[in-house]
Design a protein around this nucleic acid. Structure first.
Lengths: 344, 344
DNA sequence: CTGTTAGCGCTTTCAC
DNA sequence: GTGAAAGCGCTAACAG
């Protein structure tokens, strides 16, 4: 008897004095096995600390009961919420979630996907670094498992996607600032290669144009330093902004910190609106108005879509790439707090 | 030819007109294969979109190249940072990190571990919900793979662990408040079943006793509501506290919010110190002093320990449970900001 | 350098 | 009810 290693089904069978088939039946629900044998085998399993080896099952053509989630970072609150929600759905479908991160690097992304394919995950949830990437597209086109894009679409691919309505959210948010009477609304951001950011910029511009105002866009804000530089320059200019629209979480926080450091009254001197809610947005003073995204819902729907595609396909059947997946565009919500001037 | 499914090594071999061994050699580095054959096989692999099946490799007794991380929640910043750091180490070791969550429920924890074992992860990183759990201990004792505990030890088990020095951190933090001259220092928390919280309480009491003061401990703070109730009661009492020591992240935030809502001057009327740093602790006003834990380091060291045990064991050898794993107790750091009175 | 062959642990006909 | 045996995709002797 091989001691000190994972026990095998064969060992259980031998020790129990039954055939491997019987043991297999026992660990798969115990159908068509006499109560007596069942109990006996169960006892042996327990005594050996036997746990079935999923790898062997997989080899017989079964699902691995794992799905992959490919995101930029797991430390980012937005994506960790995604992961939590996706994991809940995975668990409900008796599956494991394997998360890999890319730091928004297209190469790391390709690598991540390949690793997951190697491990034969049943499906993939991807927040693509580059919605237009041809390398990604090529890879995806030859993948035989279902893929659902999340937060950002994958153009020209047939896979479904679940995103927030970034355009509308930004347009509505900007319009709200305009209704407050602000005339010089600056828009700050970085990472313009991302789909979400681009859409938000479009939404901002649309609202600004509709109101006959002049867009003031700076896309060079990537950290506190750059935020400070940009804001100081803006404030010292001939026509300083009377409102700032920050297109992403971190930008909102940097902007808030810079404004606080420069002793600029918010919203009296400069109003502030951020895209994406964050934990202490309502705790800081002034509390910060934001456009909230339905993070959990996005992840949940994406994961559910994935599993529905998985369940549709009869057992061994590969994923049908012919019919394009569904596209979900979820509404955002404007949360009005003090920084925009609502409860000043 | 089986279309539309994962290509197999055998298919590649057939199409390339070579033996399976050759293909196997190619995908494993291409040693002992002629350049000509190598190039040819590589071309066929590319044309078929072939990706080796890890499950089959696993079956041959190899490692799965996956490790598991079992944590309470992935949305919690502390643990998502852990996950990020652990994943970095896993990647450096050419492995995949599989994260499962337990919500600090011992049963969910056991279930999680079993699932990971089924999938034959090479090792496990666990932040145990119950450091004294006998079910966990039993399970762990029959597990043949290395396990390293993180953030919280697993008593009586032989597995190594990496934790923060919660006792010392709390003692030093409390002492700092005492040095400020505060006489009635209240300690607020919830979840007293957790190792970390217990240690912090001990540290708090130790410092209080050493100074000849009276401990004021309330362990019923679990959300904003309870924080409000407890703090109002304390403040309305005969001897209201002049400082509050919050034992965990969320408690610190709830306390801050309650104090802000009640218009209690911090630190003038009541000082505040929190355990565990968080993103906006330096941004809110007053900025909040905290005891910082070396999160990334903890996770990194734990993961490195795990891999070092993995690499020690010669190939097929099971993990040696006889010699107890190393125990690391990492120092915390007191970050002095305004809420304790340092920069008021 | 290259191919043949025997399993790894499990499920699954197909008999008994 | 139960078991024997084939084979999933791959690696690793062992021959050539």
């Amino acid at each position: 008897m091989k001691k000190n290693a994972h026990a095998t089904l064969t060992e259980v069978a031998r020790k129990a004095g039954v055939g491997t088939t019987t043991v297999s039946r026992v660990i798969n629900g115990g159908e068509r096995v006499s109560p007596k044998t069942l109990a006996h085998v169960l006892r042996v399993i327990e005594s050996l600390g036997y746990t079935p080896n999923e790898a062997a099952r997989t080899l017989k053509g079964h699902r691995t009961k794992t799905i992959g989630l490919v995101i930029p970072s797991i430390a980012d609150p937005f994506f960790s919420s995604c992961a939590e929600a996706a994991q809940a759905v995975a668990r409900a479908n008796d599956s494991l979630l394997i998360v890999t991160t890319t730091q928004n690097d297209p190469d790391a992304e390709i690598e991540s996907i390949k690793v997951l394919i190697r491990h034969r995950t049943d499906g993939l949830l991807i927040a693509p670094a580059d919605s237009h990437g041809s390398a990604l597209l090529n890879l995806l086109n030859r993948i035989v498992i279902p893929v659902v894009a999340i937060d950002r679409p994958i153009y020209k691919s047939s896979c479904g996607c679940v995103v927030a309505d970034n355009f509308k959210g930004a347009r509505v948010g900007t319009s709200h600032l305009i209704e407050h009477g602000y005339k010089r609304i600056a828009c700050l951001t970085g990472e313009t290669s991302l789909y979400t950011i681009r859409e938000r910029i479009k939404g901002y511009k649309k609202a600004i144009e509709n109101a006959g105002l002049t867009p003031i866009l700076d896309t060079s804000v990537t950290d506190y330093k750059s935020a400070e530089r940009v804001i100081q320059k803006l404030l010292a200019g001939p026509n300083p902004p009377d409102a700032i629209f920050a297109l992403k979480n971190s930008t909102t926080i940097y902007t808030f910190e810079v404004l606080q450091k420069l002793n600029v009254a918010v919203p009296q001197t400069v109003a502030l609106l951020g895209f994406d809610d964050f934990e202490l947005a309502s705790t800081v003073r002034p509390s910060i108005s934001v456009i909230e995204q339905p993070v959990e819902n996005m992840a949940r729907i994406a994961a559910e879509q994935l599993f529905s595609q998985l369940l549709d396909a009869p057992k061994g059947t590969p994923h049908d790439r012919s019919k394009p997946g569904e596209v979900f565009k979820l509404d955002t919500r404007l949360i009005l707090r003090s920084s925009c001037g609502c409860t000043a």
